[in-house]
Write a protein that binds this DNA or RNA. Structure first.
Lengths: 186, 186, 186, 186
DNA sequence: CATGAATGAGGTTTCATTCAT
DNA sequence: TATGAATGAAACCTCATTCAT
């Protein structure tokens, strides 16, 4: 792996563990095994690393969700597939997922600078399902339940509160959310 | 209001807007209208302000939840009351609620130092309802949906995504979660 | 005891234990049982406390030495009496003695502002004895041995290295120094 | 000379002239010709500079004394050599010697953290000579006279009170102390 | 006389960034 | 590309002193 990739990888891990401001350029350099100055051969600034990471993983999740949803024609399958893809990404890239949440939390306003925000896709999905009458819960509430539950499922899994294989968790969560929002909606 | 209370108030606002590390003691002092040194007559350190705030609001929400739940004997009423009290607190103290989330996110390990963590009460409630057979969804998933939805409902309300009066939102959320977790559980 | 005296007493203790710069006005106020501001009712500044203390104890020792030496006509008795008075003062006022040494060490140049420096008397004594042929050691060396030994005897006594009653120590030290400098001098 | 050595050298000078607390990191940086921040690339903290200096010079004097004393078999020569080595060190490293005294005075409790304290060697020497009957003065008093005189001889020399070449002073002091403690002891 | 909040200067330390090598 | 010393701004904190009460 190139040094640049290594920097991104180590920075991501540190950002997700300690926070962005709490991670110094020196921390990153030490984790990579180079010195501080060398970081600046690859990135203009610390913030550039942050932006690169956020943009890269946002886009990756966005495209995975987009691709997966395109394949499905059935509404239920589409919804459940979105949930699974989302959790699959979080389980596979826990540091990235945590980092993205931190970025959203503390620097939410800067999110606008990016295109391909996964949240947009989930919102569109919910709106679409609602328009088609499949999802009778108001879309704003549905969105809150969907995104909130997804984030917490990831969190509780990484904290060891939620047991079970990834597959089981993904399927159970998809099932639960579908029931809650579509079948049970009022 | 005393200077100490003013410091806590302004610090809370800044922490919730910019993050903890991102807020300097000077920022707080300026917001209060005093100099940095004066802060230290009231608090030993910046961290002490953070701890005071987290402890204070954790406890407040904890006790409100506890008191409200004690009053209810009916399972459904108890659950819904918990949801409403929780959201009521978040709506009334948006800075505190945001701040508590930030603290949990970035300094989760330090949460152990505190007693009276609202999360504990919600977990106990879920476990109790589950034991009594009211809540057929597995408790870990139910907890994820409950806490995740609550946080997002607050977030979307403060972002303007969720419209409606506080009362409407609280009741709708309570209804929705009860349906999702109790009536609809599988 | 008046507040002013109490301030001097507590300040002396703290200065001798921790050093002058290392002792804060707040430390002193706390030890006295008043607040910082009150100190300034009695002293213009922290430095004024330092000066008062140095002046006061310098003068006290100076006058004790002077008075005692005036009484003696015999050379040997005069020398030994000086040693004993000196040690007696140090044993009775260990904080003052330590403080004076610290002041000499770190702010030696300011000593010139004071009259009645005990060191002057010891030097005069040595010079006088030397002029009279009693003390054949060169006066500069004799002075070094005299003052150095006195300081160390005090130090080792307060550290518990030197055992024995004050009386024994005073007499033994006087004897030893007289032998070393007068009888044994070369 | 490397920056690290330069920092140690300038810090030593300032510490010995003004005291440790009285010397700021900025003072040191200015003396070296760099900025404050640069100090911290070489030392973790100001205190680390203090410890490095004390450890370094303690050890140096310790080892010089040890080596010199090992060579001598004759009791008198051994004692006198110790005196001379000690003064030689003080004359050659006046800043270090003053600094070590200040450290002992104000932070004596921290001395325990160091091994190879020259004082230990002098104490052992005195005890040994006493056990062998060469030194009839009680060892505690002998130690007081020895260490006190050495310190004062250095002090008076640097103040210009004691005239003469280093060699003369060293020999005279060794002679004087030997007479006082060994030949003259009672 | 005393309080204690506040000031303001200055202390130690941190850190993103630059730059000569 | 990389090093690592250095900068400079700014962070947190301390403390002698002042002042309204």
């Amino acid at each position: 792996m190139g040094t640049k990739e290594l920097i991104l990888e180590k920075a991501l891990k540190l950002f997700s563990e300690k926070g962005i401001k709490e991670t110094t350029v020196r921390d990153i350099a030490k984790a990579v095994g180079i010195t501080e100055g060398a970081i600046y051969r690859h990135f203009e600034s610390k913030d550039q690393i942050v932006y690169d990471l956020f943009g890269r993983y946002s886009e990756e999740l966005y495209e995975k969700l987009e691709k997966a949803m395109e394949k499905q024609t059935d509404r239920e399958a589409k919804f459940k597939e979105a949930v699974k893809i989302f959790l699959e990404f979080a389980f596979r890239n826990p540091d990235a997922f945590r980092f993205m949440n931190i970025f959203h939390y503390l620097r939410g306003k800067e999110v606008r600078k990016f295109r391909k925000i996964p949240f947009q896709l989930l919102r569109d999905l919910i709106l679409e399902l609602h328009k088609e009458g499949v999802l009778r819960t108001e879309p704003e509430y549905a969105l809150a339940t969907l995104t909130g539950t997804l984030e917490r499922v990831f969190l509780y899994k990484s904290m060891g509160i939620l047991k079970g294989s990834r597959k089981e968790i993904k399927e159970r969560t998809a099932e639960l959310l579908w029931k809650a929002l579509a079948e049970c909606g009022s």
